[in-house]
C-alpha cells in the first residue's frame, strides 16, 4: 500500500558531556564548544518509520531545522535508510522557541505534501520541553499521540499504538494521518549500513556546495547542484523564502518566550559538617541523628 512518513529530527548539544571549556566565565554555555549529536529519541522515531516502510512499503523523509552543521545528522539518517533528507536553515530562524520552530516545521511538512505519519522523539535533550511535537500537530491540524512506547499494528488507514500514561499505559487507535512522538525504548535504532555510508557520505546541502564553489571560479553553484541532484547526493535545503514563511512568526520574532536571565549554577557549599569516613565518624553522626529524633 505504501505509507509515507516524515520524521522530524534534531541535532542537539551533548548536554550529558559538558566540560569546563563549554561553560563560559559568565556562566553561559558556549554552544560552539559542545559536541553535537543526533537526539536519541529522534533516532528511535526514524527507526520506527523505517520499520513501517520495511513492512508496508512507502518512503521516509527526514527534516531538521537547524544551523548548516545540522547536515551531519541528516547524513546519519541517510546512512540508516531514509529516502530523503531535508535541511531547513536560515539565519532568520535563530533564537526560535518551540512555537516558532513548530511553525517552520509544520510549513515545511505542508510543502512536502502527502504523508501518513509524522514522527518525532518525545523531546530533545537540550530543552527537554516535549512541546514541538504537539505544537506541530496542532498547526497541521492532525491528531497527535505522545509518549508512544510501541507501534502495535498498522493498516491502510489506521495505526494502533501503546503509549505511556501516568501510572500505566493505554492502547490507542488513530486514523491516519497522525503525529507520533516516541520514547527511547520504542525501538532499537539499526546500525548504519556500510554500503549506505559509502553512498551518502558525500551528500551535501546547498551551503556545503556553496563552500565548494568559494574561490573556485570554474564551479557554478547551479551546475554543481544539478550534478549532485543527479547523483542523488543533494540534501534539499530550504530557507525562509523557499517556504514563503511569515518572518514575524520565525526565529526570535516569532517566539513568545524570552530568556530574561541566565545564572550559572553556583553552589553554596561549605555549609555542611564534615564527618570522618570511619567508624567514629559514622557513630558520631548516628548519635546526632538519634538526638534529633531523625533516626531510631
Amino acid at each position: 500500500m505504501g505509507l509515507h512518513s516524515i520524521v522530524m529530527v534534531k541535532q542537539v548539544p551533548d548536554t550529558a558531556n559538558i566540560s569546563g571549556q563549554v561553560m563560559k566565565e559568565d556562566g553561559t554555555v558556549n554552544r560552539a564548544k559542545l559536541p553535537a549529536i543526533f537526539n536519541h529519541e529522534d533516532r528511535v522515531a526514524l527507526e520506527l518509520a523505517l520499520q513501517i516502510k520495511d513492512s508496508y512499503g512507502g518512503s521516509v523523509s527526514v527534516i531538521t531545522m537547524g544551523p548548516p552543521r545540522a547536515s551531519d545528522v541528516l547524513r546519519e539518517c541517510l546512512f540508516m535508510g531514509a529516502d530523503e533528507a531535508i535541511l531547513i536553515s536560515d539565519r532568520k530562524f535563530a533564537g526560535a522557541d518551540t512555537l516558532a520552530t513548530s511553525y517552520v516545521l509544520s510549513e515545511a511538512i505542508k510543502k512536502i505534501g502527502k504523508y501518513d505519519f509524522v514522527f518525532a522523539g518525545r523531546q530533545a535533550i537540550d530543552g527537554d520541553t516535549a512541546q514541538v511535537g504537539p505544537q506541530t500537530a496542532e498547526k497541521l491540524n492532525i491528531p497527535q499521540i505522545t509518549y508512544v512506547e510501541e507501534v502495535l499494528e498498522v493498516s491502510n488507514s489506521k495505526v494502533k499504538v501503546k503509549r505511556k500514561i501516568d501510572g500505566g499505559f493505554e492502547i490507542l487507535e488513530a486514523t491516519l494521518p497522525v503525529l507520533l512522538t516516541v520514547l527511547k525504548d520504542a525501538a532499537f535504532p539499526r546500525p548504519y549500513k556500510a554500503k549506505r555510508i559509502m553512498a551518502y557520505k558525500n551528500a551535501k546541502t546547498l551551503m556545503e556546495l556553496e563552500k565548494l564553489t568559494e574561490g573556485n571560479s570554474l564551479l557554478y553553484i547551479d551546475q554543481l547542484k544539478d550534478e549532485y541532484q543527479t547523483k542523488k547526493l543533494y540534501i534539499q535545503t530550504l530557507t525562509m523564502d523557499d517556504l514563503k514563511l511569515d518572518e514575524e512568526r520565525c526565529g526570535v520574532h516569532g517566539s513568545p518566550t524570552k530568556v530574561h536571565k541566565i545564572e550559572s549554577v553556583v553552589l553554596a557549599g561549605g555549609n555542611h559538617e564534615m564527618i570522618e569516613p570511619n567508624k567514629n565518624g559514622v557513630s558520631y553522626l548516628i548519635d546526632k541523628l538519634m538526638e534529633d529524633h531523625i533516626l531510631g
Binding site: T15, T28, V29, D126, P256, T257, H260, K261, I262, E263
Partner: peptide
C-alpha cells in the same frame, strides 16, 4: 542545558 544553568523565562 542539562542543568548547567538556571534560566528565567518571560513571555
Amino acid at each position: 542545558f542539562g542543568g548547567n544553568i538556571i534560566a528565567t523565562i518571560i513571555t
